[in-house]
Design a binder for these strands. Structure first.
Lengths: 235, 235
DNA sequence: TGGGCGAAGATTGTATAAAGTTTCGCCTGT
DNA sequence: ACAGGCGAAACTTTATACAATCTTCGCCCA
């Protein structure tokens, strides 16, 4: 199923060695195996992926540009530790962009896309049934990316990919309770609205979905204190 | 005035060697000294800046991520050549983001910011008087970046920096006549609205400003032909 | 004379080694 | 006993060398 022969270079994340590293580290971060603030040694990662530090460095720089890794001069790379302020910015940006994206998705609806969305929803439900929280977070992000791809706007897609990665980090950092299923029903509702080409409904669904995710976070001052403490400890 | 002592590493574009390369190449592209499609040889740039290919490569990768440079595998880096479709996406994204940004700018207005905006407008008028089209384009971009900084949203700022860079490239590529002053008056109007904290007026001004810029472009099919011609001449 | 094949040149991708910086441990002096 | 400084180790940063790939020019053949 992964043997889709691309004639040229359709996707930037193709089969390069550095992309494999980047996606591996991304997955590790998003699946909570790498905690925020952790050191990402070049030798360490290079050994894991059997690659030279040159490639590791390239991947790390790309991740830094995506906002899920911080590179400090002469110190090295660390898993990003978004502040509550960052979190609010990310979700505000997501509201802005994704409300527009669903609009476009309603225009671009097609049987092929609907099928793909449907299959994704099934996958999400399966992971949810399994109680696999990590997979749920990952698939939730992929759902939003799917809609962005559907919109056909490569710029929005690029922006949203960054925002989703940071969101996953934020959710894993700040969510109150181990939210078992943060909105698979919402996703289904969004798909339903898109199928009906009902822009207003789609926007409303998406908005309440994002609001609910953000509402489940713990972004008050106590979190800032916690962060500041870690800051002193880190620097 | 530029002596704002940053204790740590507040700005990513600090005084690194790679940043100097990146900014130099960016300026060259935005000032139309490097035409779209031109080859950016690593040795060539390295020689110019007295740097090793390692650093040049890093800078080029960052520029590629910003969207003003294309890197083709085993071929090298080239100045990006945005298509009309790209241009439309860029301006749609700018409309979306900048309308929100001016909203926030109205909230963040302060004497210091107003002074900075005023000084920038003076600088723009001066360049316009000089008839320096290159400086005008650059300063126009910086005006929008200034408002983004004013909004205090680092995410919007980052997104907009990319969009502005690509916009400059697009404007230099597709504008119909050598537009002498593409909207310095608009900028003044936007500043006036921001000073009065009039969100609605600011949004309206910004929207008409962006629309006018896009309207001055030549984004039809003939433009594609024009591009192809340049292609043959360039490569 | 036009087209295809092939080798030389050039350029990029990758790895390795040297250089500089930070950090941590240890030692000495008060 | 504790604070401050010295030194070594580990790491990142930068540069250089090697390998793989593509382009180009020239040559041969139909």
């Amino acid at each position: 199923m992964a043997a889709k022969p691309r004639p040229k270079s359709d996707a930037p994340d193709a089969s390069d060695r550095v992309s494999r590293i980047r996606e591996g580290v991304t997955a590790a971060i998003l699946e909570h195996r790498l905690l925020p603030g952790m050191k990402l040694g070049e030798d360490e990662i290079g050994e894991i992926y059997g690659a030279s530090r040159t490639l590791v460095r390239t991947a790390l720089q790309q991740l830094a540009h995506e906002g899920i890794v911080n590179i400090e001069k002469n110190r090295g790379a660390f898993v990003a530790r978004p502040t509550p302020a960052d979190a609010r910015e990310v979700f505000e940006a997501r509201r802005l962009i994704e409300l527009t994206i669903v609009d476009h998705a309603c225009d671009a609806v097609s049987p092929a896309w609907l099928d793909r969305l449907q299959r994704h929803l099934a996958e999400e439900r399966e992971a949810e049934l399994r109680g696999d929280a990590r997979a749920s977070v990952r698939l939730s992000g992929e759902f939003h990316r799917l809609i962005a791809e559907m919109s056909g706007h490569s710029i929005y897609l690029g922006f949203l990919k960054e925002l989703i990665a940071r969101s996953s980090l934020i959710i894993l950092l700040y969510r109150r309770h181990d939210t078992p299923a943060c909105g698979t029903d919402h996703h289904a509702g969004i798909v339903a609205a898109i199928r009906k080409r009902d822009r207003e409904a789609a926007r409303a669904q998406m908005l309440s979905h994002l609001d609910e995710i953000e509402a489940e976070l713990f972004l008050k001052d106590p979190a800032a204190d916690e962060l500041r403490l870690a800051d002193v400890l880190g620097a």
